[in-house]
């Protein structure tokens, strides 16, 4: 494509031009205002999984941070913000510490595309059956164990 506007066109537009933002195309996901966010169950699964796995071991966020050698900030955002996508290193450290398959955890965390249909289905089932409450009730315990089994096999 060649643009062939004459000088008059540029002069006319220079006179009309006001300083303005011009960005079009879509928010970066981590900048989305909460009201505009579609949260689907699968998005919730990663945060819930980390939250329940941590509490199941009786760890605080700080403790998990120390053990996994990942930032506290990252952990807070992972557990609270369904759209936050942690870096691959953070996911790798968590997968290692908690005994999950790194490839599945990368998909679940949004780092790689969700390719595994069963993982998606299991994630939705897990998110729907768990609530981030204070203590794990037996149903949550079950949901967590079942999903963990799938993630580790």
């Amino acid at each position: 494509m060649r643009l062939r506007q004459n000088r008059e066109w540029y002069e006319k537009h220079a006179a009309l031009d006001q300083p303005a933002e011009i960005a079009a195309g879509g928010f970066s996901l981590d900048q989305l205002p909460p009201s505009q966010v579609d949260v689907n169950e699968a998005d919730l699964a990663f945060g819930r999984l980390i939250n329940l796995s941590r509490r199941n071991r009786g760890w605080s966020i700080e403790e998990l941070s120390t053990r996994a050698r990942v930032e506290v900030n990252d952990l807070v955002r992972i557990e609270k913000d369904p759209h936050f996508v942690p870096g691959p290193r953070t996911v790798y450290q968590l997968a290692n510490l908690l005994g999950f398959r790194n490839d599945r955890l990368l998909q679940l965390s949004g780092n790689t595309k969700l390719r595994d249909r069963r993982l998606g289905e299991n994630a939705v089932k897990f998110a729907a059956r768990s609530e981030p409450l204070q203590a794990l009730d037996p149903a949550e315990q079950n949901a967590l164990e079942e999903f963990v089994k799938y993630l580790s096999e």
Partner: peptide, 24 residues
């Protein structure tokens, strides 16, 4: 137009005095 953006130094939400206009 899938995405369009001006350099940050031309963007009024980034700098007080944008350098170049007409980019958009």
């Amino acid at each position: 137009v899938d995405y369009v953006a001006t350099a940050p130094w031309n963007s009024p939400s980034v700098v007080e005095e944008p350098q170049y206009g007409m980019v958009g």
